[in-house]
């Protein structure tokens, strides 16, 4: 089963449809370690579908997706830190309970780092999640994910719901906790905010990759910022 792969994430002709709606269509993708990759595309372009497939939360209609050379399963889950774009924690738990739970299950979780990030963000660790605002809850979820020493980080809209000041902190957190042997895949449509930290981008449109490359090369070739390029590619 386990074949050695130089790629942390590899998709081969990956296709996923929901009824008549095709979310991903024959996607080929390879992500090597050591990159911060932007997964950019408008709503409904297949960003979330790709991440859910990588975590095994949904299965491909055709083609396959491999994490470190293996199909998503219990083995791959210990290598992937996933931040979904929805609230996925039990509302009745307190912030500190959730941190302890993550420490319990993930061997690569840094408990002290998590509590220090929580204090930095001025989140009350004794508060129940149900009492927190949407943005605060998103911060807690991001702290949990970034406090792991995973190989692959999948961040689905990590800054979508938070204020601009916190955005900067979150992006710095992502960079600060990033280490060279891992790869971070960030999906977003808030390109302006993440542009400075990306070294590679994938433009996703209607389930296909329409543009891909190193950020510097793309900027040089087009003579535009990513943000401007994005507006051009996805003009309605």
């Amino acid at each position: 089963m386990s074949e050695h792969s130089p790629y942390l994430l590899e998709a081969r002709s990956l296709t996923r449809s929901f009824g008549r709606n095709v979310a991903l269509s024959g996607l080929d993708l390879r992500l090597a370690p050591g990159h911060i990759v932007g997964l950019l595309g408008p709503n409904g372009s297949g960003k979330t579908t790709l991440m859910k497939l990588a975590c095994g939360l949904i299965k491909p209609t055709a083609g396959e997706i491999l994490i470190d050379g293996e199909k998503p399963g219990p083995e791959s889950r210990s290598k992937v830190a996933y931040l979904p774009d929805t609230s996925y924690l039990n509302d009745n738990m307190r912030v500190s309970d959730i941190v302890e739970m993550y420490a319990d299950f993930y061997a690569d979780f840094d408990r002290e780092a998590a509590f220090s990030l929580i204090r930095d963000l001025k989140v009350d660790e004794k508060a129940r999640l149900s009492t927190l605002s949407k943005g605060t809850r998103e911060k807690v979820q991001l702290v949990l994910v970034m406090s792991r020493r995973a190989k692959l980080y999948l961040l689905d809209e990590p800054i979508g719901g938070v204020d601009p000041a916190a955005r900067e902190y979150i992006i710095n957190t992502i960079i600060g906790n990033y280490h060279p042997e891992s790869t971070v895949l960030i999906s977003t449509h808030l390109i302006y905010d993440v542009e400075p930290v990306l070294d590679h981008v994938l433009f996703l449109k209607e389930g296909r990759i329409v543009m891909e490359g190193g950020v510097d090369e793309l900027r040089e070739q087009s003579g535009k910022s990513l943000d401007a390029l994005f507006r051009e590619v996805f003009r309605c």
Binding site: G56, L57, P74, Y82, Y88, N90, F105, Y106
Partner: peptide, 18 residues
């Protein structure tokens, strides 16, 4: 709710078997 709802995003990404 816990396995097949939103919380399933956590339960099925924990390093445990089904």
């Amino acid at each position: 709710k816990n396995l097949l709802g939103q919380e399933g995003y956590l339960m099925f990404t924990l390093p445990v078997t089904t």
